[in-house]
Design a protein around this nucleic acid. Structure first.
Ligand SMILES: [Zn+2]
Ligand SMILES: [Zn+2]
Ligand SMILES: [Zn+2]
Ligand SMILES: [Zn+2]
Lengths: 137, 137
DNA sequence: GTAATCTCTCTAGCGGCTATAGCTTCAAGG
DNA sequence: CCTTGAAGCTATAGCCGCTAGAGAGATTAC
């Protein structure tokens, strides 16, 4: 049996975050000690590790809840899990593309300023006028 | 003189967002009509366009506030504006790198599942075990 | 004059935590 | 057994950048 602090240290998830996950229904309310403190089993520790890793990979709480439900039914087909992961991947790719458009626009803007006064600053001018931009964002 | 709805349509910034920007100190409280409705000048319309463009480029409210203050002092050196833009660019580059690491990890994971049952699903296994990952995230 | 459309303020909610306050419980040392 | 200090408890509020809704009043077009 582990205290909340112990599983926090072992998984790298902070104590208030663990309580938050419980509230959000990611983890079941665990057993309690006589003095009402949370006591976790090894299985619960591992589940929290799963959640941590999924969060580190950028999955949302909702997506993780669905994945945990699937994980509890090992004989079901995994198509749903694969779909969640693929959708997340597509989402990440979109974000990368958007950020790359911003990156190219911003690096052009930053390079174009020859550091004079605000009145002549290309950064300021570019912000005032989207038509100076190369593409959309 | 423009109503809030008119500048919303012209700039593409939604009405509640304009009020929010006012509350956040990005734009001054404008004149009011006899019936207490906001009335904007052309200069204020343009300033909102500046804000919209800066937001579209991903700048934070705080950064935009600073840029607007600089914009009001055309004779000052623009080093500060350039610094804000460069910092933001660096920040975007970091986010791109992080997302690219996630992308490569996730695309590997998604590709590795041969769509069987949950018990054998590589997506689920990879989430349970970070040591299956190629790099950190 | 009336109806339709804006606009007003105020409040609450989103996601994913994080921080604080004021309390209780636990574990270790004497 | 008792004390002390760390750790845990609940409840509440705050972060960012909006967005949504309620219930009221203002404006505009016909
Ligand atoms: Zn400059
Ligand atoms: Zn632009
Ligand atoms: Zn699978
Ligand atoms: Zn990993």
């Amino acid at each position: 049996m582990f205290s909340i602090g112990q599983i926090a240290r072992r998984t790298g998830v902070k104590v208030p975050t663990i309580r938050y996950y419980e509230q959000m229904g990611l983890i079941e309310a665990p057993e309690r000690s006589q003095g009402n403190q949370r006591r976790y089993s090894k299985a619960e520790l591992e589940q929290l590790g799963f959640i941590k890793h999924a969060r580190d990979l950028g999955l949302s709480i909702d997506a993780i809840r669905d994945l945990l439900r699937l994980n509890a039914h090992p004989e079901m087909p995994c198509a749903e899990a694969d779909r969640i992961a693929s959708e997340h991947l597509a989402n990440i790719r979109e974000r990368i593309e958007r950020l790359q458009r911003l990156e190219s626009e911003l690096s052009r803007i930053v390079k174009s300023c020859n550091a004079g006064t605000v009145k002549d600053c290309y950064v300021i001018r570019a912000l005032s006028d989207h038509s100076l931009c190369r593409d959309e964002h």
